[in-house]
């Protein structure tokens, strides 16, 4: 059943549920953080509205830099501003930042260990009709591998708002992964969010299976947990919004208690959340793990619904894979 401590909205399984894209939560969070701390500045590479940076840019025009379509330079410009005491948030599509400008982020931000925040919107296949070139499915892998980096994948718009505010308070490089598409708003202001913490959101005694997930796909994982519970399976779901540093304590605790482990993410099966969890458990609590995600292929054009189905990570696909695995 749902963990009360999650403080989700009243009925997360209701037919009608308010939706908002995580990129919008970022825009709101940036505005709030900017009101509190005048050192916060924003940069954007010709995608001001798509990344919701326009809210900040309108309110604080003198603290916003339009850099044009220059993602590589933007990362290092942010590094320079951070070196002077600013707290830059720079945004583009995840494919281009941290995709295109990975080395600039590695050296001029992480190796320098400066206080700059990388905001990658339009991650995953939910980007839809734009197709593979715009669907970042590798960004968790390439960011979490860099020393000094913190990697956050918020599960809904409200979580993205909180993640942005926490990132502003955290001293050091942070990557926040966002999505284009509207998704269910399931968390509330009261829902806890700390960098570095994993949260059991659906709990049971002695689970047959524990599912770890991150990002807005969490909503469908919860629906799957509900169905499995109704079929008398014992399920735990742990939301892991911080991929790095990983909450190893919570993860090992839940893995130890559980017969089987599953990970679900809108990312390549290799390199993302599933890999991060496998790395930890292979050292501390070896278990067989079913990793669901995009299986070593590029995305393509289509509606988000078609693409989730195609890659077996829609509600039906996740349910079928988990049922088969725990049979």
């Amino acid at each position: 059943m749902l963990n009360k401590d999650s403080h989700f909205i009243k009925d997360i399984f209701a037919k009608e549920i308010k939706e908002e894209a995580t990129r919008v939560g970022y825009g709101k969070g940036l505005l709030e953080a900017g009101e509190k701390n005048k050192n916060i500045v924003a940069l954007c590479a010709d995608l001001t509205e798509s990344t919701s940076t326009h809210l900040f840019a309108k309110k604080f025009p003198h603290r916003f830099v339009q850099v044009g379509i220059t993602e590589q330079s933007m990362a290092s410009v942010a590094s320079g501003m951070a070196a002077m005491g600013k707290v830059p948030f720079f945004s583009s599509y995840a494919m281009f930042s941290p995709g295109r400008n990975w080395e600039q982020i590695r050296t001029t931000i992480c190796y320098n260990d400066v206080n700059a925040k990388i905001i990658g919107s339009h991650s995953g296949v939910s980007v839809g009709p734009d197709g593979a070139t715009h669907q970042a499915l590798e960004d968790i892998a390439i960011t979490r591998v860099i020393p000094n980096m913190t990697v956050i994948v918020p599960s809904d718009s409200e979580a993205a708002r909180k993640a942005t505010i926490k990132a502003a308070e955290h001293n050091g490089p942070v990557y926040i992964r966002l999505a284009r598409e509207k998704t269910p708003l399931i968390t509330t202001e009261k829902t806890p969010f700390e960098i570095g913490k994993a949260y059991p959101v659906w709990v049971t005694e002695k689970p047959d299976v524990t599912i770890f997930s991150c990002g807005d796909i969490l909503f469908n994982v919860l629906r799957v947990a509900k169905t499995l519970t109704e079929k008398n399976k014992k399920v735990t779901v742990v939301n892991v919004p911080t991929i790095k540093p990983l909450d190893t304590k919570t993860i090992i605790e839940h893995a130890k208690n559980s017969q089987k482990i599953v990970t679900v993410e809108e990312h390549q099966r290799s390199g993302g959340l599933g890999s991060a969890i496998s790395e930890v458990l292979s050292e501390s609590c070896p278990k067989q793990i079913l990793r669901l995600g995009v299986d070593d292929s590029f995305g393509e054009s289509g509606t988000p619904t078609e693409l989730f189905k195609h890659h077996g990570i829609d509600y039906d696909g996740i349910l079928a894979s988990v049922e088969k695995y725990i049979k």
Binding site: P129, G131, E300, S301
Partner: peptide, 22 residues
């Protein structure tokens, strides 16, 4: 831009004869 189409939202070299690059 539809699912399964050779006409991807942005050109994909191996999807359609005549495209030189993605």
């Amino acid at each position: 831009r539809k699912f399964g189409s050779r006409l991807q939202g942005h050109p994909h070299r191996t999807s359609l004869p005549g495209l030189e690059t993605s």
